[in-house]
C-alpha cells in the first residue's frame, strides 16, 4: 500500500530571504543513477489473426465518435503483442530483482496506448515485482512522456525518502486505427525499455532536468560536456540545443517513446553523464534529463 500525508514544500534555507521550496539544483547537483537496463524489441508480425467480434465491436464503437474506422488489415498485419507482453519482455531483459533491489515506484510511460483495453500495464508489472511499489502510468504527451515520468518518479522519491525507481517505456506498434506512416506519432514496431534508477539525493533537488519552451532559460541546468542522446523530435528541426562538445547519438523516428531511452544504453559512459533530450514540435516543448550511467550493466 502507498500511504502518505500531503507533500510539504521544504522551508527556505536558514538565513535565506526567498520563498520556501527546494534548494537550487546548483547547490546540491544530484543526478539520478541508471544502474540496470533492459530492452525488448520483438521483431516481425504476430501470430495469425483470428478476428474477435467483441474486440472489433469495441474498436468500431470507440472510433465512431471520432470519425476513425477500425483498420482490420493494419491490425492483422501488426505484432499484436500487448503492452503487458512488451513490458514483461523488458523486465526479463532487466533480469531478476531481489526484494532489496525492488523499485519503490514504477512509472509506465507511453505515447501509443495498448490495443488491449482489458489490461493495465502498471498493475500487471507490479505483480511481477517483489515488494509493494507505487505503480501507475503516464501518457498523452508524445515523446515527452518518459521525461515527465522520470521527473515524477524522482519527485515521489524525494517526498517519500525512496531511492529505487523503475521507468518502463513502451512503444505499442499495433493500433486498431490508421497509424500515421511518418512524423512524430509514427510507431514502427514494438519496443519496451526498463530502466532501474537509483536516487541518492534524499530531499535535494534533481539536477540536469527541465521541460518547457525551448528558450535560453530552459537550459540553465544543461551540461554541455555530457554525452548526448538527441531524440527523433530534435532531428526534425524546430528547436536548437545549446553548444555541446560530448559524444552525440541521434535517434531516428518511429519509436516515439522508447527511441531515446534505448539509445541511452549505447551512450552510457563511465566518465561523463548522459543527457537525453527530445522536442515535440506540435507542443513546442523540449525536455531533457541528465543521468549518471557509470555503473550501468546492460542486459
Amino acid at each position: 500500500m502507498f500511504r502518505a500525508t500531503a507533500p510539504v514544500r521544504p522551508p527556505a534555507p536558514a538565513g535565506a530571504d526567498g520563498p520556501s521550496g527546494p534548494a537550487t539544483a546548483t547547490a546540491t547537483a544530484v543526478l539520478p543513477r541508471l544502474v540496470r537496463a533492459g530492452v525488448h524489441t520483438p521483431p516481425g508480425p504476430g501470430a495469425p489473426y483470428e478476428p474477435e467480434g467483441a474486440r472489433e465491436d469495441f474498436y468500431r464503437e470507440l472510433g465512431a465518435l471520432y470519425g476513425a474506422a477500425f483498420d482490420r488489415g493494419q491490425f492483422a498485419d501488426s505484432g499484436r503483442r500487448t503492452s503487458v507482453e512488451l513490458a514483461y519482455g523488458a523486465l526479463d531483459a532487466l533480469g531478476p530483482l531481489t526484494a532489496e533491489e525492488c523499485p519503490e515506484v514504477v512509472v509506465v510511460a507511453y505515447a501509443a496506448p495498448d490495443f488491449d483495453h482489458s489490461e493495465l500495464v502498471a498493475s500487471c508489472v507490479k505483480r511481477r515485482l517483489p515488494g509493494e511499489p507505487l505503480s501507475f502510468a503516464l501518457s498523452d504527451q508524445g515523446v515527452l512522456a518518459p521525461f515527465s515520468a522520470l521527473r515524477v518518479a524522482v519527485e515521489y522519491a524525494r517526498r517519500c525518502g525512496w531511492s529505487r525507481l523503475l521507468l518502463l517505456v513502451v512503444d505499442q506498434g499495433t493500433q486498431p486505427f490508421p497509424l500515421p506512416a511518418t512524423g512524430p506519432a509514427a510507431v514502427h514496431g514494438d519496443a519496451a525499455v526498463a530502466l532501474l534508477i537509483h536516487w541518492d539525493g534524499g530531499d535535494a533537488a534533481p539536477a540536469g532536468m527541465a521541460q518547457g519552451r525551448p528558450e535560453p532559460a530552459l537550459f540553465a541546468d544543461w551540461d554541455g560536456s555530457a554525452a548526448l542522446v538527441a531524440g527523433s523530435g530534435l532531428s526534425e528541426g524546430g528547436a536548437e540545443l545549446p553548444a555541446h562538445d560530448g559524444p552525440l547519438i541521434r535517434v531516428a523516428a518511429g519509436q516515439p517513446a522508447t527511441g531515446g531511452w534505448a539509445a541511452l544504453l549505447a551512450a552510457a559512459d563511465r566518465d561523463r553523464p548522459v543527457v537525453v533530450a527530445d522536442y515535440d514540435r506540435e507542443r513546442d516543448f523540449l525536455a531533457y534529463c541528465t543521468l549518471d550511467t557509470g555503473e550501468l550493466g546492460v542486459r
Binding site: M1, R3, T5, S118, L120, S123, C124, K126, R127
Partner: peptide
C-alpha cells in the same frame, strides 16, 4: 491531509 491507495494486482489483466 492523508492519502492511501493499494492496487490488487491479480485483477491487472481483468480490467473487463
Amino acid at each position: 491531509l492523508g492519502y492511501a491507495t493499494r492496487t490488487h494486482t491479480q485483477f491487472g489483466d481483468e480490467f473487463i
